[in-house]
Simulated scan of single mutants.
Amino acid sequence: MTGRGGLPGREIIFEYLGLADSVRLAAIDAATGTEVVVFGPARTARHDLERVALRKLARRLGLNTDGTQKTPRPKGRGVIV
């Protein structure tokens, strides 16, 4: 799959594995080999699981959901609200 759901220009491989009444979904970035795994009920729509996996993969890669690099937070105390 390429680009659907928020990672344009990247090839993402999805791997599904059914486990009793749940499903394990692994999303792998083909360019870097980075893999993330999410679990969900077997009745959940595939699109919803893929969306969660893509968001998790984007975060792991340090990308925004539109595929651009995240800007690093400034160092120091406190939280930017």
Rank of each mutant, 00 (worst) to 15 (best):
Met1Tyr: 02
Thr2Tyr: 12
Gly3Asn: 10
Arg4Trp: 14
Arg4Gly: 09
Leu7Cys: 03
Leu7Val: 05
Leu7Met: 12
Pro8Gly: 13
Pro8Phe: 13
Pro8Met: 13
Gly9Asn: 07
Glu11Tyr: 02
Ile12Asp: 00
Ile12Pro: 08
Ile13Arg: 07
Phe14Ala: 14
Tyr16Asn: 05
Tyr16Asp: 11
Tyr16Cys: 08
Leu17Trp: 10
Gly18Ile: 13
Gly18Asn: 13
Gly18Ala: 10
Gly18Val: 14
Gly18Thr: 12
Ala20Tyr: 01
Val23Cys: 04
Leu25Trp: 03
Ala26Ser: 09
Ile28Trp: 05
Ala31Ser: 13
Gly33Ile: 06
Gly33Met: 07
Gly33His: 07
Thr34Asn: 02
Thr34Tyr: 00
Thr34Ile: 00
Thr34Pro: 00
Glu35Ile: 11
Val36Tyr: 04
Val37Asp: 06
Val38Arg: 10
Phe39Leu: 11
Gly40Tyr: 05
Ala42Gln: 12
Thr44Trp: 01
Ala45Pro: 01
Ala45Phe: 00
Arg46Ser: 14
His47Asp: 12
Asp48Gly: 00
Leu49His: 07
Leu49Pro: 08
Leu49Tyr: 02
Glu50Ala: 08
Glu50Ser: 06
Arg51Leu: 09
Arg51Met: 08
Val52Lys: 11
Val52His: 01
Val52Cys: 06
Val52Trp: 04
Val52Asn: 06
Leu54Glu: 02
Arg55Asp: 01
Leu57Ala: 05
Leu57Lys: 09
Leu57Thr: 01
Arg59Pro: 00
Leu61His: 01
Gly62Arg: 04
Gly62Lys: 06
Gly62Leu: 06
Leu63Thr: 04
Asn64Cys: 11
Asn64Ala: 11
Thr65Gln: 06
Asp66Leu: 04
Thr68Tyr: 01
Thr68Pro: 00
Thr68Gln: 03
Gln69Ser: 15
Gln69Asp: 15
Lys70Tyr: 00
Thr71Ala: 08
Thr71Met: 06
Thr71Gln: 03
Pro72Trp: 12
Pro72Thr: 12
Arg73Glu: 09
Pro74Val: 10
Lys75Ile: 02
Arg77Val: 10
Arg77Trp: 10
Gly78Glu: 10
Val79Trp: 02
Val79Ser: 02
Val81Ser: 15
